[in-house]
Design a protein around this nucleic acid. Structure first.
Ligand code: SF4
Ligand code: SF4
Lengths: 135, 135
DNA sequence: ACCTTTAGGATCATTTTTATCCTTTTTAGT
DNA sequence: ACTAAAAAGGATAAAAATGATCCTAAAGGT
C-alpha cells in the first residue's frame, strides 16, 4: 500500500546522482542513467519536467546535459517526490478533491495525521543529505 | 501519491458501519452497502476476504449476513488496511522484496521512517474509535 | 554543414483498479 | 422436500495508471 512508483524512485536516484557531482557540474543524461541504473528514455521525461520546475538546468547540443539549478540543500525530498507523484495524500479526502463526509468522519482525521507526518518527514530531508557519501 | 484505493476506502467504511451496530448484530450486505453508499458487488468481495481473515462472521441463507467476529476495539485500522491493500510500504525497499542498495542508501532510511510513522498511526487507531458517533 | 544532446509528442504494452455477472452452496422457514 | 434468501466463488471486462519506447524537432558547439 501507498507505494512510490518507479518514476518517483528514478527521479530521486537521478537527482541525487546529480547532487553528488561538484556543484554546477553538467552531466549527460546517458551518464546519469547509466550510473544510477535507470532507463534513459524514461529518465529523460522526468528531467525535462525537473527543468521546467527549476530544479535543474538543461543544456542542449555538444557539451550539454543537466546540472542542478539550485544548491542541493535547497531542494527537499518532498519537492522532488511531489514533482513527479503529485501532492502527498494517503486518501482523496486530504486532497483538493475533498469528501463531503470529512466534517464528521473520524477516519478523515487519521489520514490528515498520516499526511502531516509524511509531509513533515519528507520536508525535513534535503537532496544534499541524501547525496552525502562520507560519514 | 501514496493513495488508498477505493477498495481500501470501501473496506473501512463497511467495517466501521458494522461496528456501529450493537455488538454481534448481523447485517445484510445490501444493507451495509446502501447505508455506507458502496457498490454492493465490490463490497461482497471485500467482506468475503474479511470473513476468511476472521474479522467478520458470515451467515448464508435467509436471515444471513455479516457480523463483527471480534470486538471493534480489537481490530486496528492497520489490520483492515493491510488486509485489503497489503503491507504498508512507501517504497519497495521496505517490503520483503528489498533492494540491493539499501545498506548504503540514505533514501532507504527515510522510507523506513515513513513506514514506521504510518504503521504506528494506523496501529494506534481501532475500529471502535472510528465507529463512535457521540463526543 | 554536421554532429551532439535535450524537448516534445505520439504511441504502446502491461499491470492495476474497479467493478459486474453468473453459478453454486448454504441455510431458514414452510 | 421445496423454496426463497443470502453469501461464496469464479470468470470476465472496462477503464485507468504505470512504465516505458520511438521519432521528429530544436538548439548548441565545432
Ligand atoms: S475517510 Fe472519511 S472523509 Fe476520507 S474519504 Fe473516507 S469517508 Fe470521506
Ligand atoms: S530508496 Fe534506496 S534502498 Fe530504497 S529502493 Fe531506492 S535505491 Fe533501493
Amino acid at each position: 500500500m501507498m507505494e512510490l512508483t518507479r518514476k518517483g524512485e528514478y527521479a530521486i536516484r537521478g537527482i541525487v546522482h546529480l547532487a553528488r557531482l561538484p556543484h554546477g557540474n553538467v552531466a549527460l543524461l546517458s551518464e546519469i542513467a547509466e550510473a544510477a541504473e535507470l532507463p534513459q528514455t524514461f529518465l529523460a521525461k522526468i528531467f525535462q519536467n525537473f527543468a521546467k520546475l527549476g530544479f535543474v538546468n538543461s543544456y542542449r547540443g555538444t557539451g550539454g546535459g543537466f546540472s542542478l539549478a539550485r544548491p542541493a540543500a535547497a531542494i527537499t525530498l518532498r519537492q522532488v517526490v511531489e514533482a513527479v507523484e503529485g501532492p502527498i495524500a494517503p486518501n482523496r479526502c486530504v486532497t483538493e478533491l475533498g469528501c463531503e463526509r470529512s466534517a464528521t468522519c473520524r477516519v478523515h482525521t487519521v489520514w490528515r495525521r498520516v499526511q502531516e507526518q509524511v509531509v513533515g518527514i519528507l520536508d525535513g530531508v534535503t537532496i544534499e543529505e541524501l547525496a552525502r557519501e562520507e560519514d
